[in-house]
Design a protein around this nucleic acid. Structure first.
Lengths: 167, 167
DNA sequence: CCCAGATATCTTGACGTCAAGATAGTTTCG
DNA sequence: CGAAACTATCTTGACGTCAAGATATCTGGG
């Protein structure tokens, strides 16, 4: 009935331990959310590895990728970037500074708003982000290895529904 | 065929943007992993909210919870704690110090190993973690609201399979 | 018994992030 | 037109984390 059982994982053990200690609680939610947290952590490590060839960090990729997928001319304001990447303005200032030092992006004044700035991908930045994204997709495809296409779609759909109330 | 479509979410838009820019790539994996990263982030915020009543932070909960689910006498070594919580030793020293200052845990020498220390939950620590876990379970059940029990199980099972290659 | 290597914990210094606030420029509307 | 409210970006200071290494103790082979 249960298909090819592949034994208890860390989270199963964690839930069993809680069940022993707090038999009064329904731990169903933990089986989902605990796995999501752990997966995010493991995924972050996998991304780090995928980016070693381009010598960029996940936070650098996040910014470069936002510029890259915006399309030509690969320019966005710091405000757009922080909304895309879900970080605060102080963090974004810092990131742009350091990416600028590495020659991957450059600031220019916004011609329509003198308060504003536009951040653009340099040629080196575009090369770095395209290479990094290739590596990332390869890595992620590996990680999905065991899942069939139908299962992957099912999983993506369930995750999408789970995100809805959190928006 | 597609059931009650609830429109494109952030990730759908992100994938469409990448598709425009990099039509050469198969973006299937992104639909899964990008949602996992985002969910982890949103979940972290939700946990923060759930813990406000006990005035504890997620990192504090992680340590207290490891001690709590270990069962009586609620004592573990720093080494066991760092393996449970996936942080480095320096971080764990820091966490134990601060939880000690707040009176939620206390250090005692390990009677069997003079290098060692045991970290134990105080009565106040146990009250805090039990209250926090109640709130967390409530919050998480809310977040699952839209999913049926069968869907929750399906999701947990798919996530478990996704984690396997990452261990 | 002793020493080399392993183990447990703590210390240090650098890093990336955030929250709060400062500064400069823009918009709205009386 | 001018003042008040708003917006965009940057600055500052505190925080939690990590990697690397220091210190103390334990263990097994010779």
């Amino acid at each position: 009935m249960t298909g090819p059982e592949s034994g208890a994982d860390e989270v199963d053990l964690l839930v069993e331990a809680w069940q022993r200690e707090r038999a009064d609680l329904d731990l169903g939610p933990v089986e989902v959310f605990s796995r999501i947290s752990r997966l995010a952590r493991l995924l972050d490590r996998a991304r780090r590895e995928a980016f070693t060839a381009q010598a960029i960090e996940p936070w650098e990729f996040d910014v470069l990728a936002a510029l890259r997928r915006a399309g030509k001319p690969y320019r966005l304001s710091p405000g757009q970037l922080l909304r895309e990447t879900m970080v605060t303005s102080g963090t974004m200032t810092n990131r742009i500074d350091r990416l600028g030092e590495r020659g991957l992006v450059e600031r220019s004044p916004d011609p329509h708003d003198r308060r504003g700035v536009l951040v653009g991908l340099t040629a080196a930045g575009k090369r770095a982000v395209d290479g990094a994204f290739d590596s990332l997709i390869d890595k992620e495809r590996d990680l999905l290895g065991e899942l069939t296409t139908a299962e992957r779609r099912e999983l993506a759909a369930l995750l999408k529904r789970l995100m809805e109330p959190l928006r």
